[in-house]
Design a protein around this nucleic acid. Structure first.
Lengths: 232, 232
DNA sequence: TTTACATTTTTGTTGCAACAAAAATATCAA
DNA sequence: TTGATATTTTTGTTGCAACAAAAATGTAAA
């Protein structure tokens, strides 16, 4: 139950209860794209999958639902969200506001070592794209973004951004690899790193906002081409 | 358990489970300032207070904690948050980003009737201030702000803003009535309404941002004068 | 084949008791 | 009085069974 406060400081997984553990594992699965949009989740199924009783499983599902990482399709049915055009647009607007803020603040706190770490992450993205491991590319892309956002030194902001990524994660994976093949964001990432090097918060924000907008456009196009069909 | 999805549409309270009900009641109490910053909440105490068993009480507390409306003071102790200067500053930054966005979008969807409704709300704020009912003034102030934010037609955004108000609510009430006596925000509210009348989103945003910044300055000053002492 | 209805199964909810761990309290030495 | 230590009490967690409600399935009529 103390997972939230722990996320604000250090991921101390030693004294974690089963509900926290279930929540973390389900979150990981959702972000990794294990469940497709529309997938139905039941308390007993999750309990069996994670080998815990119904109580922690219910805790995890409730918490994910309250964060809108899962949504209600009926009074007794929670599913992985299927984003429609309106919801995608709204989340993008919020992402621009929050991730733009985090990017700008990152420019105020960044040191050279941070930029070096980011260059390493970008290399991992590029390598993954080279060999066609798109799921890995997506994962490293997430790490790159959050490495920047954490530089803002605004932990509450980072957590709020995480919930947004949790909402779009499944739809993102559902559109892969068509979406990733275009080498998304490589240019924007380079610009962001240069701006960070120069401690230019406004330019970091602009680069991240561009990245988000590019992703939004590609996602919308991919949605039109391959209408996101709910998994049975 | 379906409270979240219901909040996105209509407050249909007919088919609501005990966990939702407990969550809603506790939220109301926190916003209304029933509990002071530092107040400790236990599962059994909440259960008794709301006349339900421990399960729904635990649900409500867990959910509020995951939204940071309650925080952990120890592995087994959740308390109403005591905001320090750093947290207040961070939340204000996030509020500026999100409420600024909502205010701007409100300018795109507002109709004349909406402005009329806002004028009524402002009159209620003024009346409450006139007769010294500061808690009521605070409540109507909240209604005024959210009436604007709802005009954005971005329900997810409105919910995220609500969680932010939930975090600062207790500290706000703790500093009353010193804080309210200054007739906060009256001017900013007038400007916001004029801008809405003219469908000028950018100016609505500016007015709301000013209101938030003014509130932040007053809150910080009030904090210095009367150091927020945790209730025993 | 489709639609409407009845039946069966699945599912979330709720309360509770036992347990372990943490917090509060009492005790005592310095 | 203060500080550390031992004791007692409080507290969150976990699993589970019973229940009601919803979802899935089956059935039959058009």
């Amino acid at each position: 139950m103390a997972a939230h406060v722990k996320e604000l400081t250090n991921p101390d997984r030693s004294a974690e209860n089963l509900g926290d553990s279930a929540y973390r594992q389900m979150k990981e699965r959702i972000i990794r794209g294990v469940y497709r949009p529309g997938h139905k989740l039941t308390v007993r199924a999750v309990a069996q999958e994670l080998d815990v009783s119904t109580t922690p499983a219910r805790d995890a599902i409730n918490r994910l639902a309250s964060e809108a990482a899962l949504v209600y399709a009926g009074p007794k049915t929670v599913v992985v969200p299927v984003l429609d055009a309106g919801a995608l647009k709204e989340i993008t607007l919020i992402r621009l506001a929050l991730e733009g803020l985090a990017a700008q603040q990152a420019g105020e706190h960044v040191v050279d070592d941070d930029v070096e770490a980011l260059r390493l992450l970008q290399k991992q993205i590029n390598s993954a794209l080279d060999v066609g491991r798109y799921a890995d590319a997506l994962w490293h892309n997430k790490e790159f973004h959050f490495a920047i956002y954490r530089l803002s030194k605004l932990p509450h902001l980072v957590l709020m951004i995480e919930t947004l990524w949790l909402r779009i994660g499944p739809s993102l994976h559902n559109l892969y690899p068509e979406f990733a093949k275009e080498r998304f964001g490589v240019h924007n990432h380079e610009v962001a790193m240069e701006a960070l090097q120069e401690r230019d918060g406004a330019s970091v924000r602009a680069a991240i906002e561009n990245d988000i907008r590019d992703g939004y456009r590609r996602l919308k196009r991919a949605c039109r081409e391959k209408a996101a069909l709910p998994a049975s």
